[in-house]
Design a protein around this nucleic acid. Sequence first.
DNA 1: CGATAGTTTGGAACTGTTCCGGAAATAATC
DNA 2: GATTATTTCCGGAACAGTTCCAAACTATCG
Lengths: 347, 347
Amino acid sequence: MSSMRTIAARAKISMATASRALNGHAEVDPRTRERVLQVAQDLGYRTPSERKVDAGSIGLVQASRSGFYDYDALLMRGMVEAGEQHRFDVTWINLSREKSPDESYSQFFRRKNIRGAVLRSFGDSAHVVEAIAAEGFPAVAIGERYDRADINWLRINGLNASRNAIDHLIALGHRRIALVRHSRPTADHADRVAGYEQALRAAGLELDPGLVVSIPVGPLAGAVAINCLFAMPTPPTAIYFTDPEVTVGAINRCHELQIRIPDDVSVVGFDDGLVRRNTWPRYAAVCQETWRLGAEASGWLARKLAGFNPPPLASEQEAHFEVLQSTGVPPARQIRVLPDGTRLQLE
Amino acid sequence: MSSMRTIAARAKISMATASRALNGHAEVDPRTRERVLQVAQDLGYRTPSERKVDAGSIGLVQASRSGFYDYDALLMRGMVEAGEQHRFDVTWINLSREKSPDESYSQFFRRKNIRGAVLRSFGDSAHVVEAIAAEGFPAVAIGERYDRADINWLRINGLNASRNAIDHLIALGHRRIALVRHSRPTADHADRVAGYEQALRAAGLELDPGLVVSIPVGPLAGAVAINCLFAMPTPPTAIYFTDPEVTVGAINRCHELQIRIPDDVSVVGFDDGLVRRNTWPRYAAVCQETWRLGAEASGWLARKLAGFNPPPLASEQEAHFEVLQSTGVPPARQIRVLPDGTRLQLE
DNA sequence: CGATAGTTTGGAACTGTTCCGGAAATAATC
DNA sequence: GATTATTTCCGGAACAGTTCCAAACTATCG
């Protein structure tokens, strides 16, 4: 049973080298390491800490250096809920900060005592997801779809819900519908934009590039968008915001400029939590229940780690469109409002 | 340098016993353990994993079974920020779920690879905080003050800010000021209530128990509070809400009943994040920057774990009162509004 | 070809943990 | 009060892994 010794014997090397290989030290010959890792896998080697029943946690893994914001909190909430049931803890972990380039992902996670990973926002670094999958480490990627069979992923598709939202606005009679979108879009974000375009095209409306505002996310983004759009010679009668924070900022800017929602402009926003119910008016939104992503991803990992063999995860759920109080028919008399509050007649 | 052996020799016991004592196993005589721990401390003993730079994480520890909500997310955000600097990961961990009764806290944390603990919401289980401190495990309790010198704690005191808030309302001319508070108050919460009472007393106003609404937190709490207060024969002209979620719910209920803020009623809320800027009108609030608690607590732990010897933490910071757009002079003509929307004349 | 520098490896020393059996203390029984 | 369990506590030894050091091997350059 003396595991490490067995490995050393099988791989015909000393225990010292086996130890180094298993821990990803730099000074082992790559071929030797490969051999050791192979033998370890064959023998089902587990480190002392892994042999304990409940040691290790599931990681919410982030690739780039960045803080912990609403979206993370929602994912985490779902993971914690699943953790109550499946008995695991959740660790927030940052790849860019701690992983040394010459250790593998498995080694990194092992060092950190992470047994399964939920990978978030890896749009710009898909290679990391691929590398982790290639090592066979249990992981689920959130937010994007992958075509490789060995990558488990989970996302919510906002395309149809976005189409429904725009259809809803068109049905109410809107023709000039603006889009406020991220200037640095994720794939997660792209289908909201696509939904907007498809709906307009399907209704035979032309896409006016002047009605599309690209904006970096931030507390002021919503206000800036409203400033731009209402200073136009002919402002839109409805706006679709693809981000919750931006939606809220915009609604408040409307209050400030005394632009009435939905009397002067109809608003559809995006909501990944329950913010839409906290504004006034409560805003119609394309909704995704982000915490469910967290819960499902980590629930799947828990089952996998417990030895059940769940089928690969490659699942796309639909966002839904929820009408609340922020949409109505287009105004009989449109208004134009400059950022300083001046109201102008429309020619 | 052979640390554990040295300890064993000094304490005149075997290494086996030393190991057991340091890991908090149950089967050592309390006096022996005491002696070993003392010697270990004197010699500045650190376990092998502690000697590594980056192993282990800091835990955000919760006592009772419950989910991961706004307050947790804010604490976590601060901890993650500190973690970027001090190079640690953050784990969410639940004591009630995983700790078996016959292991010590140190043992539990070690099993979980947690090197320092941020303890939140331990109002109803102060004995846990005491026990953890007694074991000498690095921990910081958030939200309550403790009198024992070996307990590190950090909290924000809302007393003065609450007094300032009520003073502000009194200065504006308000005399009937209502309080909406939790029905199950934490110590964290109590000083907000005390601030309210003190300010009124100091101004020579009597405390009208009819103006105090105790309410269980939840998405409907705010609406219920407004319903109650505005159905009174003489409604208040100003209201202080001691909880963010309740404040937001109340503001929206006011919109619904067409009670204008601040024209018909002045509102002061509580904010532990930045919600106050997301409502309309942006609400005046007693503000505490919860994430700073997380950042400071875990920063202190990081310094402690790194071997610096930071002075014990027993710090109370002041919340501050921020005036925004939700307060004004009392209305010339007060209104009374029933939950169904009926407006009644005031006798 | 030989000197030199850098890699890679094994032996041995080391760190800490755990199993097992036994001594000492405590409780139970006659 | 003596004897017999039972429990508590501890040490020796076996064990798991890690790391230091020196030796062996490889590559490079004059």
